[in-house]
Every structure is written in C-alpha cells, then in structure tokens.
C-alpha cells in the first residue's frame, strides 16, 4: 500500500537528512521524495511517497511529527488530492521517425523541448500511470536517458498548506 505524505518543514540546513535519516534508521521505504520551498520562504514542503500498511503509516507520521523541524504532516488520499509528476525523456530519433514521436507526444499533451539530429527530449507531466504509458510507447525507439521528479501533490478544493 502506498501513501503520499505532505510534510511541512522548517527551511533550515540539515532538515532533509533528519527526515531521510529517520526513514532509514527505522527501516521505512521511501518510493519518492521531492522538496521545495513554499509561499512562505521559511517553510519547505516535502512530498514523500511511502510504502507500508496503515500501522507503518501511523508510525511514520508520528516519528515525522517527533522531529522538531517538522511542522505538519498530512496524509494525502489520492481520491481528494491532485498529484503530478514531471519526466524528461531523451529518445532516439532521426528524420525517419520524428513525426511519429511527435504524434505520441501530442496524444499525451507532452512537449518537445529539444531536438537534435539523433535525439529528441520530451517533457511530460501527469500522474504516474500516464508517465508509465508514454514511457512504454517511447521505449521501442530507444530511450537514451530519463529523469523523473517524483510525485508532488496538493489537496483538492482547499489550500492545504
């Protein structure tokens, strides 16, 4: 079972290693982790995707809350939150298949952000399944490199800062 946690933390040195250290020390697995500053420059927001049953989630939440630099932990249920991930995919291409790849990108509302004689870089945003789907369609052309941001998420309807 996977859970997405929004963790508001003090924007101070060392806070990432405090959080990451707690996870590794207690044996919890992080699927992905993203960090960025919020509208308040003294606060950063981490989006952590963690794997485990409800008991693990409860312990993770409590242990996070125990860290002095953690201000608030929210469990974002997928049904009432929006989630996005961004991926950059560098794929083999030349004149022969360029338009075919552009069509695929089009279907996924992805963007071509770099074109070279033997490759293209595609930027795609979406939930995990969408990124998995475009990855699968691009694989036959040969993916040279790929980078994903990990998930970011917000609660729907209200500002859940």
């Amino acid at each position: 079972m996977r859970h997405t946690l929004a963790v508001l933390v003090e924007n101070k040195y060392g806070v990432l290693s405090r959080v990451a250290g707690m996870f590794s020390r207690r044996g919890y697995n992080i699927d992905s982790l993203t960090v960025g500053v919020t509208d308040d420059p003294t606060i950063s927001r981490m989006t952590i995707v963690v794997r485990g049953d409800d008991e693990v989630l409860e312990q993770v939440t409590k242990q996070l809350n125990k860290l002095i630099d953690v201000i608030r932990v929210t469990d974002l249920k997928s049904e009432d939150s929006v989630e996005r991930e961004l991926a950059l995919i560098k794929v083999n291409s030349d004149v022969s298949n360029r338009s075919e790849i552009m069509q695929i990108a089009d279907i996924f509302r992805a963007r071509i952000i770099d074109v070279a004689s033997k490759s293209m870089v595609i930027e795609v945003t979406g939930d995990e399944s969408k990124i998995a789907a475009i990855e699968q369609l691009l694989r036959p052309f040969g993916i040279k490199e790929m980078v994903r941001t990990g998930k970011v998420a917000l609660r729907r309807g209200q500002k859940s800062s």
Binding site: Y13, G14, S17, R18, G21, M22, R25, I68, D69
Partner: peptide, 16 residues
C-alpha cells in the same frame, strides 16, 4: 558531530 548524533539526540544545532 551534528550528523553523528542526529539519531541519538532529541534535536541538535550547529551554531552559524
């Protein structure tokens, strides 16, 4: 020492 003691302190500080 702040790195070393992170898991064995309630909190720690490096004064800057």
């Amino acid at each position: 020492i702040t790195g070393i003691t992170m898991p064995i302190t309630k909190h720690n500080y490096l004064v800057q």
